[in-house]
């Protein structure tokens, strides 16, 4: 629509925006799904070390079609490569890297994030669904900074930023920042504060969309 105000950025633009906040030297875990896109936008001349919880630091991009190695996969069970300087380790060491506070950043998807930084991303709690948690709970409480990458609204238009999560929790008070298609939010001890607006989005619009007071007017 000519002249329409752009208020959202694409998933790829969001991945690039998150990548721009990851400094050289960081040890980073990118969660399964959309967060893996962030790897495509990390600057090639920065040394940023990717961790995959099935047992590899120094994960590289997907292999060429002829070079798939079934022993070398990521947490999503997709084939990957190992960079020069990579290291393999067993699962107890891998999760010790998270729990022990050695991992700098992880980027995760979300169903909901609460105003106090609670994360719900592993189960909708729907009856009959087969539960599967994997490493989500370990990542949520383990990394020094937990970034969430998500659309602000669900497909049916409900805010994923909420006063309290309705879905089963993955971790309590663990999210530090939420990157959405409309804005970037910091999780303060006392609600969400907008860090950056995309396009023509305004604070007032965001408050209407999420039905929560933002801390920017305090």
């Amino acid at each position: 629509m000519p002249g329409a105000l752009v208020t959202r950025i694409s998933r790829e633009e969001l991945a690039a925006r998150i990548a721009a906040d990851i400094p050289e030297g960081a040890y980073v875990n990118l969660g399964i799904g959309a967060p893996t896109l962030v790897a495509n936008y990390l600057l090639a001349d920065l040394e940023i070390i990717l961790h995959t919880e099935n047992g590899l630091l120094g994960m590289g991009p997907a292999p060429d079609a002829g070079l798939i190695d079934p022993d070398l996969i990521n947490a999503g069970k997709q084939p990957v490569t190992a960079l020069a300087g990579a290291a393999y380790f067993h699962h107890a060491d891998s999760f010790g890297m998270m729990r022990g506070g050695h991992l700098d950043i992880c980027v995760l998807g979300a169903f909901q994030v609460s105003a106090t930084g609670d994360l719900a991303n592993w189960s909708t709690g729907a009856p009959g669904a087969i539960p599967a948690v994997g490493g989500a709970m370990d990542l949520a409480i383990g990394a020094k900074d937990v970034f969430v990458m998500t659309d602000l609204l669900t497909k049916s238009g409900e805010s994923k930023l909420v006063a309290e999560c309705v879905y089963p929790l993955t971790g309590v008070g663990c999210v530090s920042r939420v990157y959405t298609d409309r804005a970037v939010f910091d999780v303060t001890g006392d609600g969400f504060r907008v860090r950056e607006l995309f396009g023509g989005t305004t604070i007032d619009q965001l408050e209407q969309l999420i039905r929560l007071d933002l801390r920017n007017k305090d």
């Binding site: 891998s94 729990r99 994997g134 709970m137 370990d138």
Partner: peptide, 26 residues
């Protein structure tokens, strides 16, 4: 949770009677 699964297995092999984990709290 995957890390608790790994650590519970590790604990068995290392003779640890039980341990406190931050994963899954709440």
């Amino acid at each position: 949770p995957q890390g608790n699964l790994a650590e519970r297995i590790r604990a068995a092999g290392a003779g640890i009677g039980a341990f406190f984990s931050p994963t899954g709290v709440g």
